[in-house]
Each structure stands twice: as C-alpha cells, then as structure tokens.
Computed example of a mutant assay.
Amino acid sequence: MALITFSSTMHKDKTVYAVAGSHKQTILQLAKDNHIPIDFSCGDGECGTCLVKVSSIDKAKSNQYGHMGGPLTDREVKVLKEMGKITQAQIDQMRVDDIPSTEWRLACQMVVRDEDILVEYPSR
C-alpha cells in the first residue's frame, strides 16, 4: 500500500492509503473517494484543471524528478506542454527512460504506484 498525502494552502493536509498496483486508480479518483477538493472539469486529461505537483516522500524509490508514477499519457503530455509545464526535451527523455520527466501531473491521468507521495494542489 502507498500513502498519499494531499496538501493545500487552504486545507489541512490529509494522508490516505492507496491500493498500489491497481493500474486504474488515479490521484483524482483517490481524492474524490476521500473528499479532498481537487478542482477538475473534464476528468479526461484535456483541460488541465486538475494540475497537481507530485513529489516522492520515499526518497529510496524516487527518480531525479521525485516520483515514480506511470509515464505521462499522450493527453497529459499535450496539456502540460500547452501549459508550459513540460518541454519537448523532457518529453523526449521520458520516451527513452519510460519514467515521468516532470513534477507536474494531471490528477485525472496519474495512476498511483507503490510509493509514498505528496500531492500539492491549488485551492480557492
């Protein structure tokens, strides 16, 4: 099991257990299930509303970007590039290394892995 800590400047931090290895449970779904108010619109990786910053709490399992979540989806790459959160060089490196090349993720696209992570999200 992984521990996911959700952090926001306007809400108290909340840590929840996540079933790692399900290959289906996204950060957004985990937030919804635990009443954590991450903003989202489409829920399909096309709008960028659910942008979060992810870092590893377990440094032994982390890569240079701080987390081992699954590779970015094609939709996520497109949106993050449009938002200026990822460069073409990072995208190219991710394709070679098969690991995320940015701390920025879309909560509706990032699937939880067996790693303790911190998810920082904006609040209104």
Rank of each mutant, 00 (worst) to 15 (best):
R113N: 04
M68A: 11
K32N: 13
S41C: 11
D97M: 11
T102E: 02
M94R: 00
Q109H: 05
Y65F: 15
I117Q: 00
W104Q: 03
H35Y: 08
V54G: 01
D98I: 10
K61T: 14
Q29P: 00
A20I: 09
G45S: 14
Q29I: 02
S62D: 15
C108F: 10
A89I: 03
Q25S: 11
D116P: 01
V96W: 04
N63K: 11
L30M: 07
S101C: 06
Q88I: 08
Q29H: 13
G69S: 07
Q93W: 03
Q90I: 08
I91Y: 09
I99S: 07
P37L: 09
E115N: 07
Q88Y: 09
K85W: 10
E120G: 06
E103W: 00
Q93Y: 13
R95G: 01
P100G: 02
M68I: 14
V112F: 08
S55L: 04
G84W: 10
V52K: 02
L118K: 12
K85E: 09
I99C: 04
C42T: 04
G21S: 10
S101M: 15
M94C: 13
L118R: 06
T49V: 15
K78L: 12
S101F: 05
A20F: 09
S22P: 03
S22C: 11
K61N: 12
Y17K: 14
Q93N: 12
V119W: 00
V79I: 14
E103R: 01
L80A: 04
Y121T: 07
K32E: 07
V52W: 02
G43F: 02
K85C: 13
V77W: 05
S62T: 15
R105M: 02
K32Q: 10
E82S: 15
R75K: 14
H35L: 12
T87A: 15
C50K: 00
E76S: 06
I117N: 01
S56M: 01
S55C: 08
F40I: 05
Q109K: 08
Q109T: 04
L80I: 13
V16L: 10
C42H: 06
Q25I: 07
L118H: 04
D58K: 10
K78I: 08
G48S: 10
M94D: 13
E103G: 02
G70M: 13
T87F: 11
M110C: 06
A18D: 11
Y65K: 14
D97G: 00
N34G: 01
Y65T: 13
G48Q: 03
E76W: 10
V77F: 12
K24Q: 11
H35F: 11
G84Q: 05
M110S: 07
C108V: 09
S41W: 05
C42K: 10
M68R: 08
K14T: 13
K12V: 14
I27M: 08
V19H: 12
D98N: 13
K81W: 10
D33S: 11
E120M: 11
C47M: 00
T15I: 05
M68S: 13
I27L: 15
G21M: 09
S55H: 04
P71N: 13
T26V: 03
V54D: 01
V79Y: 09
L80H: 06
D92S: 08
